[in-house]
Nucleic acid binder design. Structure first.
Lengths: 119, 119
DNA sequence: CTTTCATATGAGCAATTATTCATATGTTCA
DNA sequence: TGAACATATGAATAATTGCTCATATGAAAG
């Protein structure tokens, strides 16, 4: 606490009330970390590509790998991570594992990102 | 090309047309990388906290550092990255640099993420 | 049951990245 | 002009992470 105080700008008064109010409005730490972890999923181009593909159609693992020109192993590792984040689900269909988006938010999050990127 | 073909599942025919159509619908690589880079900004808890703070109020660097309990240097490094991504801007005001969100998409992207995290 | 095909997984490596520490820059105020 | 303050920056380090390679699992078809 003492050390943190030393970081404050010298400016007395006027900033303090704003800082206090903003501090109260922040989500709790758990939520913040969950949120960052969620966006981390969208922050890798391989995972981004996988999600884009699955926005168009559900698809088995080997088709995803072939379509994207990425090794089966790499795809599988990323799929595991995406499933842990509940963004993707899968079902078995004969010999194949068919993957699909598990959450509608994926679409809306990507769309928001796209509208930023495309100016 | 030959090696990629070997990744395909043996299954003939039926998958091929879907794979082909999806491939055409994918954004170009530049867009995909830009998009992943954008979301990478939201994928770190320090940057996430900074953006949350600035969603509530513009604020100078030292107040952000004090409020979040993170060193001034760490904040400054992250602010530089956020500015490069055009998510945050700043202006000088006396001795202070006042930071603020540069893009309305920040709010909508975070809101979409929140509604996923909060079930 | 044995082989084959689709997928998963673990270890190891290389690359990226967030932080700290020390210091530089630039502004204000005496 | 000089001292004090706010911010920026560079180098070094530690931690995280995405990929490859080899191999394991597990369903299916003969």
């Amino acid at each position: 606490m003492d050390e943190i105080d030393e970081l404050m700008c010298a400016e007395p008064g006027s900033h303090e009330d704003v800082v206090g109010k903003v501090r109260e409005s922040l989500p709790d730490d758990d939520t913040l970390y969950e949120l960052a972890d969620l966006f981390k999923m969208f922050g890798d181009s391989t995972r981004m590509k996988i999600m884009f593909v699955l926005m168009e159609s559900e698809m088995c693992v080997c088709d995803i790998a072939e379509l994207l020109g990425i090794s089966q192993s790499a795809i599988s590792h990323q799929l595991r991570i995406l499933k842990q984040s509940k963004l993707i689900s899968s079902r078995r269909e004969g010999k194949n594992i068919v993957c699909f988006l598990a959450d509608d938010h994926v679409r809306s999050i990507i769309d928001q990102g796209l509208s930023h990127v495309l100016e």
